[in-house]
C-alpha cells in the first residue's frame, strides 16, 4: 500500500476550492466598489472592472479545476469499497477525494454565478 495524504491527517485540499470561490467573490466586490467610488463615479464605465472580473474568473476556475482534478484522482485511488465510512486511511482518502471534487464543482458554479453579474452591468449604479 502506498502512502496516502490521510496518513498525515491532511484536510487542506478540501478547503481549497471554497477558499478560491470566497477570494474571487471578495476581489470582484472590492474591485467594483473601489472603482466606482474612487475612480468612475455614478454612471461611470465598468469596462475595466469587467475585464478584471474575467481575469479573476479564469484564474479562479483554473485553480478550482486543478483542485477538482486532484480530488478526482484521490477518489479513484485505491481499492476501498463504498460507502467509504470505515476508519481507515484508504477510506478517508477516497472519501475526501470525492468531497473535494464535489466542493470544486459547487465552487466552480458559484464563481460563474458571481461572474455573470459583469455581463449585465456596464456602468456604476
Amino acid at each position: 500500500m502506498s502512502q496516502t495524504a490521510e496518513q498525515h491527517q491532511s484536510l487542506w485540499l478540501l478547503t481549497a476550492s471554497p477558499s478560491i470561490w470566497a477570494a474571487h467573490f471578495v476581489l470582484c466586490y472590492a474591485s467594483a466598489a473601489i472603482w466606482c467610488e474612487k475612480f468612475a463615479g455614478l454612471g461611470g464605465s465598468l469596462t475595466a472592472v469587467r475585464l478584471a472580473i474575467v481575469v479573476y474568473s479564469v484564474v479562479a476556475l483554473t485553480g478550482i479545476g486543478i483542485v477538482g482534478w486532484i480530488g478526482c484522482g484521490r477518489h479513484r485511488f485505491g481499492d476501498a469499497e463504498l460507502p467509504h465510512n470505515a476508519d481507515t486511511p484508504e477510506d478517508r482518502h477516497r472519501f475526501l477525494g470525492f468531497a473535494t471534487l464535489l466542493l470544486s464543482a459547487l465552487s466552480g458554479v458559484a464563481v460563474l454565478f458571481v461572474s455573470l453579474v459583469a455581463l449585465f452591468f456596464g456602468e456604476c449604479y
Partner: peptide, 19 residues
C-alpha cells in the same frame, strides 16, 4: 433552473436601477 433564474433576474436589474 437557478442559472436560468439568475440570468433572468440579472437581465432585469439594469433597467430597475437605471436613472
Amino acid at each position: 433552473v437557478l442559472s436560468i433564474l439568475l440570468v433572468f433576474g440579472l437581465s432585469a436589474l439594469p433597467g430597475l436601477v437605471a436613472p
